[in-house]
Every structure is written in C-alpha cells, then in structure tokens.
C-alpha cells in the first residue's frame, strides 16, 4: 500500500520538523519595509535558528486577508491604525503592538538638480505631474498631503497629482520620469541615510504627523515561539541598526 506508506513518511517528517527546536513564523510585511525585513529575517535565522517567512504586500490587502483567515503570525504594518483595528476585532493579540520604524518622506526627482534642499521647486511649479501615494490608503500619501497643506500648496497643486496605489508604485511613477516629482519614502531612494541618486528634499519631520509603522502579533501566532521571538528580535539593537541604515527613524 504505497499511499499509506506515503502518509506514514509524511507524518514522520512532520513530527520531526515540528519536534525540532527551530520554529517557523509567517510574517506579513508592508511592501515599503520588504528590503530591511529580509535583512532582519536573515540575521534572525542565523542567531536563533527560527525561520521567518516573509510575505510582502499592501497593508489594506493584509487586513482583508487576516480578517478572512490568512495564515499569518505577525504583521509588520505600514501604519499604526491597521494593527490597532485588528486588535480591537480580536484578530491580533492585545498588548503586543509597538512601533518598529518611523518613515521619512522625501520630495524626489529621478533627475539630478531638479529638487533643491528646501523644496522650493514646489512653489515654482515648473512640473506637470506630482506623484503621491493615495492619501486614502497609504500613510506616506497622507503625510504628503499634510506637508502640502503646511506649505499652503494643496489646492494649487491638486490638479497635478497622480496617485500611486502604494508608495512602491508612486516611486515607479517618479523613477520612470513620467512624474517629474514624487513624494516617496526615504527608504526607497537612500543608501545609508543619504539620497543615492536623482535629487531630493528630505521633508522636515514637523511638516507632517510621524509615519508610524507598527508591528503586532496576530491571533494565529499566539502560541508560535518563532513569531514571538521575531517580534523580540525586531526590537533588538541589531535590527534597529538595520532599520536605521535603510532610512527609517526609530520611535
């Protein structure tokens, strides 16, 4: 009976895998944090033997998926509202939320010499399109709108907005040159905290509310040792150094 033998083998393999010290956690990661999360997960695996499997996507989509039973243990959100909402609805463990990174907004152009150090290019207005992330969906888009409001430019520039579905698409609009300017994440255009190519203005933090990105342990990961260990690792010095090197602030 080959089928039964297969089952037995499978069961044995599962028992071996489950019995080993190393656990596995499914981590849903906001797309803007994909690169640092990968680096952190690698260091985490080396140090603890646990595996953190990363799934990247948009926070709004993750919310819909988690509410409908998606197999995630941890959420690294792009905002601070979604984890709170999940906790209220019982999909996340109370008391496990914390801010793992604070995003920095940059006014950026793929061409050097376009954006000056004070963002005066916005007032000059010699551009056709300004790419921002959809403020209804993305915290970076909301921060961009707040910045424009603080500068008194929202209404005059609104006709030039093109909205990216998320900050990744917004960056694509600007990087391909289709939008001369874009409000993107520093993490997308920075190497070691400095803007690597094109030209940009790192928007002063007081012009918008901080872009807090929160992490939370999801209900499914309640008893998952690897998931809890990953959240602990995320708050450690090694992970913090990585997060900073990618252009994020820390709370």
């Amino acid at each position: 009976m080959p089928f039964r033998r297969l089952l037995v083998t499978l069961a044995a393999a599962l028992a071996l895998a489950g019995g080993a010290v190393a656990g596995e956690a499914q981590v849903a990661v906001a797309a803007n944090f994909a690169a640092p999360a990968k680096r952190i997960a690698e260091a985490f695996a080396r140090a603890t033997g646990h595996q953190a499997t990363l799934v990247t996507g948009s926070t709004g989509k993750f919310h819909a998926q988690i509410v409908n039973g998606a197999p995630f243990d941890v959420l690294l959100s792009a905002d601070d509202e979604t984890p709170a909402k999940l906790e209220q609805a019982g999909h996340a463990q109370a008391g496990t939320r914390f801010t793992y990174a604070v995003g920095r907004l940059v006014l950026w152009s793929a061409n050097p010499g376009v954006v000056d150090g004070e963002g005066a290019v916005l007032k000059r207005g010699d551009f056709r399109h300004l790419a921002i992330a959809n403020p209804k969906l993305a915290p970076y888009g909301q921060a961009a709108i707040e910045t424009l409001a603080a500068l008194g430019l929202t209404d005059s520039l609104r006709p030039r907005f093109v909205l990216g579905e998320n900050i990744a698409q917004t960056h694509q609009f600007a990087a391909s040159g289709n939008a001369e300017l874009g409000f993107v994440a520093l993490a997308q255009v920075a190497k070691n905290g400095r803007i690597a190519d094109g030209s940009g203005w790192i928007v002063p933090a007081h012009l918008h509310r901080p872009i807090r990105q929160d992490a939370v342990l999801l209900a499914r990961g309640r008893d998952n040792a690897a998931a809890k260990a990953f959240l602990g690792w995320l708050q450690g010095d090694d992970a913090k150094a990585t997060i900073r090197s990618f252009g994020y602030d820390l709370p």
């Binding site: 709004g60 909402k85 209804k136």
Partner: peptide, 8 residues
C-alpha cells in the same frame, strides 16, 4: 473598487 477595499 480596489480603493474602497484597501480603505476597508
């Protein structure tokens, strides 16, 4: 529709 879903 996508925007509505993403905005919950």
């Amino acid at each position: 529709i996508y925007d509505h879903v993403e905005a919950l």
